[in-house]
Computed example of a mutant assay.
Amino acid sequence: MKRLLIAAGGGGDAIAAVMLHSALYGPAAPALVLTYSWERLVVDPLPGPRGRAHLTGLRTPLPHLDLVTARTAPIPPAGSSLPRLAADLPVELGLLDPYEGTAGLARTIAAAAEYCGAPRVDVVDVGGDILTDGTEPTLRSPLGDALVLAACARTGLPTEVWIAGPGLDREIPERELFGRLPPAAFTLAAAHTEPVRRIFDWHPSEASAMLAAAARGARGRCAIRDVPEPLRLDDRSAGVHRLDLGRALAANPLARRLTDRATLADRGNLADAERASVEICGFSEIARERDRAASFRPLAEVAPGAAELPARFADWQADLRRQDVTLVTRRRVAEEFALGDRDLRTLAAGSAPEAFPLWTVTARHGGVTARHGA
């Protein structure tokens, strides 16, 4: 038997699902993680998710179930981190294709359960936006999570929802989020991050990186992208909270709407779900991605010159220290200075093992230190 886990929000949640799998079942237990190929523009320049029609080299062991392998590739100009994740993660990856809506996702989940011989499903969400009521002003990405909840309900399979690192996605204000959560079931530890350790050398996920850092004992104020206020990592940041599917659905009106629509009509698709998101949440994240894509500029076009980078970097570090920021995500550094992987490795001046995979802001040498190895 393989364990069946679903990464509710895409690539970053797939990394967290592997950490959770290690904690629940042990790192050697076989598992399949279903996940979206729904990337930020820095990975995929096309807005919205990629489905099976956008990828080559998928393996299909059963109808409706497509497995991603290291040989899978997105059809240009699309991009996807899933083939590299499939090569680096110690589990199998399966594709969630939302273009056929809730009914299509339910068929995939049911086929995955048959393939795994799994009697139940574990849904994994980093941060907690799967519990959105649709009114939070900081909400950014409700659709994928809601589709997963609705699809799981449609299958009838016993389903548990695990929320790891509450608040790390900064989508639901902490006070509201913790009011919707039961007490933590357990806390991730450093050992649970080992199966994903090498992923953070290249994957842009911030929430999963902060979850891993918190599990490894990192504490402090962390600067992340697109959010003016630093996020505080504390003893709750590596916590994992368990809810049954009914409680998660009760908290999420968009998921309930998608469940109702799937019950009434099997022809629902991603466009229908997007319209439901506009009705419930007041916006479409795919439309927002279309707007961002129209003005997106690749890093190479906006990167500072080598001569000016040290001074700009030093000024930025000084400003972070004045805000009492002690940690920063790799992605925040990359986007602040439009740097690729090679330039980031050059910029990393030392090592800070207590903060891996985050970078530590220190007064030493007036800059940031980072650990990129064991």
Rank of each mutant, 00 (worst) to 15 (best):
Lys2Thr: 14
Arg3His: 12
Ala8His: 00
Gly9His: 03
Asp13Lys: 06
Ala17Ile: 08
Leu24Cys: 10
Val43Lys: 09
Leu46Pro: 01
Leu58Cys: 04
His64Pro: 01
Leu65Lys: 00
Thr69Glu: 12
Ala73His: 12
Ser81Ala: 14
Leu85His: 04
Leu93Cys: 01
Gly101Arg: 03
Leu105Gly: 04
Leu105Asp: 04
Thr108Val: 01
Glu114Ala: 15
Pro119Val: 04
Arg120Tyr: 13
Val123Arg: 10
Val124Cys: 02
Leu131Val: 13
Ala146Lys: 08
Leu147Asp: 09
Cys152Trp: 01
Cys152Thr: 07
Thr155Cys: 03
Pro158Cys: 05
Gly165Phe: 04
Pro166Lys: 03
Gly167Phe: 02
Gly167Cys: 05
Asp169Met: 08
Arg170Gln: 10
Gly179Thr: 00
Pro183His: 00
Pro195Lys: 00
Asp201Asn: 15
Trp202Met: 05
Pro204Gln: 06
Met210Leu: 02
Gly220Tyr: 11
Pro228Tyr: 09
Leu231Cys: 05
Arg232Lys: 10
Asp235Cys: 05
Leu243Thr: 06
Ala251Pro: 10
Asp260Cys: 07
Arg267Pro: 00
Arg267Phe: 07
Val278Arg: 14
Ile280Cys: 02
Ile286Ser: 02
Ala287Thr: 14
Ala287Glu: 15
Leu299Arg: 15
Pro304Lys: 02
Gly305Glu: 06
Ala307Asp: 11
Ala311Leu: 14
Arg312Gln: 11
Phe313Asn: 04
Ala314Ser: 13
Asp315Arg: 12
Ala318Glu: 09
Leu320Ser: 01
Leu327Cys: 01
Leu327Gln: 00
Val333Met: 13
Phe337Val: 05
Ala338Phe: 07
Ala338Val: 04
Ala349Ile: 07
Gly350Leu: 10
Ala352Glu: 15
Pro353Asp: 15
Phe356Lys: 09
Val361Gly: 00
Gly366Ser: 11
Ala374Leu: 08
